[in-house]
Amino acid sequence: DGDASPTVSMAELDHLSQIISKSHLETCQYLKEELQQMSWQSFLQDEVESYQSKPREVMWQLCALKITEAIQYVVEFAKRIDGFMDLCQNDQIVLLKAGSLEVVFVRMCRVFDSQNNAVYFDGKFAGPDVFKALGCDDLITSVFDFAKSLSSLHLSEDELALFSAFILLSADRSWLQEKLQVEKLQQKTQLALQHVLQKNQREDGVMNKLRCKVSALRSLCSRHTEKLSAFRAIYPDIVRSHFPPLYKELFG
């Protein structure tokens, strides 16, 4: 009948939340235990300088590799989301092409140290200055600002899991063939997220704050694509021969 609003019981929402949280924890690059044991050690000044003095293309290549590794975990997460693999193959690809990097940015807040404005990268905690050689300071600043702002919400793992699934199941992506089916999945995920927020006794405004993050994520990803195009215009051979094939497939 064209109505996408699903009727879902509390028990179903609990079940959905549990499955998505489990999938999130199983597919996070860094386990909770690893995070607890992390020494949160920052790069020393000479190490920062060594990253800064790398040729631009070498730093781009390193970051493309790290992003690709993180995306592979997000693909595994997507596969374990109830209903994702029931979507047609076209839509699975559309959702991951558009949403996988957004989820990497969301997951970044798990390995972000707000006090030092540093993110876990290549074995230690790195501030924005480590990425200087990339030549896109504005994008890097925005990524760090995003991580800081999302971290300030202090989302629990189950909230992060459901928010990540909500992002991946965005029904307004272009080129979806079975939009209504994606919409139903997203609405169910949103209900589960609201249910968990309520259960965790979060204040009412959190869901609205998370909705604002959706547009921030889109802006970050489109700016990443712009920066990549600009980089590729100067170094087409580096991208062609040295960038991970999955990265090129998703962002090329």
């Binding site: 592979q72 693909v75 595994e76 596969k79 193959q89 690809i93 559309v94 092409k97 497939e249």
Partner: peptide, 17 residues
């Protein structure tokens, strides 16, 4: 789309580990 995203398609086809 599947043709242009062979690696992603392959990752989706692989059984979850």
């Amino acid at each position: 789309l599947k043709e242009k995203h062979k690696i992603l398609h392959q990752l989706l086809q692989n059984s979850t580990s």
